[in-house]
Design a protein around this nucleic acid. Structure first.
Lengths: 197, 197
DNA sequence: ACCTGAACACCGTTCAAGT
DNA sequence: ACCTGAACACCGTTCAAGT
């Protein structure tokens, strides 16, 4: 147990943790490699070993964001019992919780994902969205959602969830209104689906 | 017609125009007051007369963004005939067109809107969303949408539209899929509404 | 293998001075 | 009223040098 936990292999982790906190509290624009290095107790040149430039750090943040979101969605799906509707509700709520707790990170994840040569990020994103697709496929199998290409049905659903998150982080909906809006939206979505099924 | 169109009262306009182009082409993060001043042919201190700091310029960009979005929505509503469904479709399409043509500006608009002391921005935003609410109220009056608080119905609708825009700018949906997704979503929304009406 | 520290070209912001 | 230009404290990035 050395006095200085850095300088010895976990600089990368320490930088990522500090960066994640800055992004959450002050936004991506305020993120400075030099400040991070200072916070963590190394010289301003040190991060370069782990992140060649600022963009590399942002990519790594997005990557770990997708991984965290995936485990949170997974826990929501698995913890909500087997019935479709509560499971759908829990999944949507978990996504929105992540989105509102860390809006700048989610935005970074989307921004950075569709950049050239971001193959790893695309894969991490796909694994994340696969969790939501499971729920859609279950809903189709049980007749709650219209049949056909699950991607197509999933997109309409995901657009709604992402939209709710955007309204919250954009301040158009107060947190107290979330439960009502989410329940309204899901009920609305299911009515539209059953009318078509 | 002087040789130098700036230095004489339209510096503000020139800076805003240049800033809008930079935001569109390279994102908010790349926006530099000094570069703007250079592009426009003034010293780096000159913008200060018109925008005390960088944030003031961003606020002004957001403000003019809301105004432009409002006129585009207005044109869509007025140009789509009197029938509800095509009018709804045209309005949603206009919003999504704006969002995808200038995603960084839209994001800036939302980010900046819910800051302390941004009363003018809030008002500009409200005027913009009022155009969409008109369509919702018409839909309710004609029985296409469920009755009750128009705000509540409008939010579900707006979440869907905003979500579609997010999927597009996030690269989860290709531009070629937009028409299908938008039509699917609106059809879905209307089915859900009529089932409840 | 990992980190330091000087160097360079950029920022935003402030402010006295010019016209 | 509006703009200039020096000054200051910050950046990101590069790279020789240290351990």
């Amino acid at each position: 147990m050395p006095e200085r936990p850095y300088h010895h292999g976990n600089l990368r982790r320490a930088l990522l943790d500090a960066a994640e906190r800055t992004v959450r509290e002050r936004g991506v624009g305020e993120l400075s490699l030099r400040e991070l290095a200072r916070d963590v107790g190394v010289s301003h040149g040190a991060p370069r070993r782990h992140f060649p430039d600022r963009q590399a750090l942002l990519d790594a943040l997005a990557q770990s964001g997708f991984e965290r979101l995936r485990t949170e969605l997974r826990a929501a799906v698995d913890g909500a019992g087997d019935a479709f509707e509560p499971r759908l509700h829990a999944t949507a709520a978990a996504y929105i919780r992540f989105a509102t707790a860390d809006p700048a990170l989610l935005e970074l994840m989307f921004t950075v994902k569709h950049r050239e040569g971001a193959g790893d990020l695309q894969e991490a994103a796909d694994r994340t969205f696969a969790v939501m697709m499971e729920v859609v496929v279950q809903g189709q199998a049980e007749g709650h959602l219209e049949p056909g290409d699950p991607e197509r049905v999933g997109l309409v659903l995901f657009a709604t969830i992402q939209g709710i998150a955007a309204l919250l982080t954009g301040g158009m909906v107060a947190p107290e209104q979330l439960d009502e809006l989410l329940s309204d939206s899901i009920a609305h979505f299911l009515r539209g689906s059953r009318a078509a099924a």
